[in-house]
């Protein structure tokens, strides 16, 4: 494996009495696309939010690019990490252009004023497969799929090398979802990003991930390349998960 970008070391996390992560350890290499899959409440979103410090571990360490994030300024850390979530969370009072330029704007990045900002927004819109003409629209004027794309463009705006995505395609129809999946694969290839992608759809995980992490009840069930997941499932849970994919139930 190449150089490690994200490292979890024996992380424990619980909400009240309920443990969500139990001795969770994992290394993610540069340029990897790690798809994290599991049922609701298995700890996958918690693991993702540990990376940008939205959630702090009870015990254990999380390192990003070799630095323990408990020692880092969370604001500076988050600005270097793209973040896209299921409900997109676009700012309703800002145009598409201002939404996309949000992180460069709050971190006062150079080259994001006036004409430069417009050009960069257009470029990002094209990259996520949208027409640059949408730049002046408000989020409420967009379709669900278009919002998701803007959300991805916004996460990419500050040129992060890490991208965190929490079920970003959970709320769109099957056809749009497939297009978005192809789009994100293309972006991953072109930019050489390290992506952490949470999903509850095994097909999506197997399609996108260079490695797939299967979680259940706060523990790692298996973390392997997709073909190994299919050929050699490590636990009953993994087997059940991939079996369901291979033999889809059809109503007769």
């Amino acid at each position: 494996m190449e150089e490690t970008v994200i490292r979890f070391e024996h992380v424990w996390k619980s909400y009240g009495e309920q443990p969500v992560l139990k001795d969770f350890s994992l290394e993610i290499g540069k340029g990897e696309f790690l798809a994290v899959i599991g049922r609701s409440g298995c700890g996958k979103t918690t693991a993702l939010k540990l990376v940008n410090g939205l959630i702090v571990p009870d015990t254990g360490r999380v390192e990003v690019k070799g630095q323990d994030i408990s020692c880092a300024d969370p604001v500076m850390l988050r600005r270097q990490i793209g973040y896209a979530i299921q409900n997109v969370g676009l700012f309703p009072h800002m145009t598409v252009e201002k939404n996309i330029a949000y992180v460069p704007s709050v971190s006062r990045m150079d080259g994001w004023k006036g004409e430069d900002r417009r050009k960069k927004t257009e470029e990002l819109l094209r990259q996520v497969g949208l027409s640059p003409a949408l730049a002046g629209r408000f989020p409420r004027e967009l379709s669900g799929g278009q919002r998701q794309r803007v959300g991805i463009a916004r996460a990419l705006a500050a040129s992060p090398d890490i991208l965190l995505m929490d079920e970003p395609f959970g709320a769109v129809d099957a056809i749009t979802r497939e297009q978005l999946q192809d789009e994100i694969l293309k972006i991953h290839r072109e930019r050489g990003l390290t992506v952490l992608f949470v999903t509850h759809d095994i097909e999506e995980a197997l399609k996108l991930g260079t490695r797939v992490l299967v979680m259940e009840e706060g523990t790692v069930q298996q973390c392997d390349i997709p073909s190994r997941l299919l050929s050699a499932p490590a636990t009953d849970f993994v087997e059940k998960l991939v079996c369901r994919r291979r033999e889809p139930e059809v109503r007769m």
């Binding site: 939010k49 939205l54 988050r78 979530i85 969370g89 676009l90 949000y102 992180v103 709050v106 965190l164």
Partner: peptide, 15 residues
């Protein structure tokens, strides 16, 4: 306010 939007704002590195 919509919690998702606030989390997005925080997660992207707003003070």
């Amino acid at each position: 306010l919509d919690a998702d939007i606030l989390e997005a704002a925080k997660g992207m590195g707003s003070t």
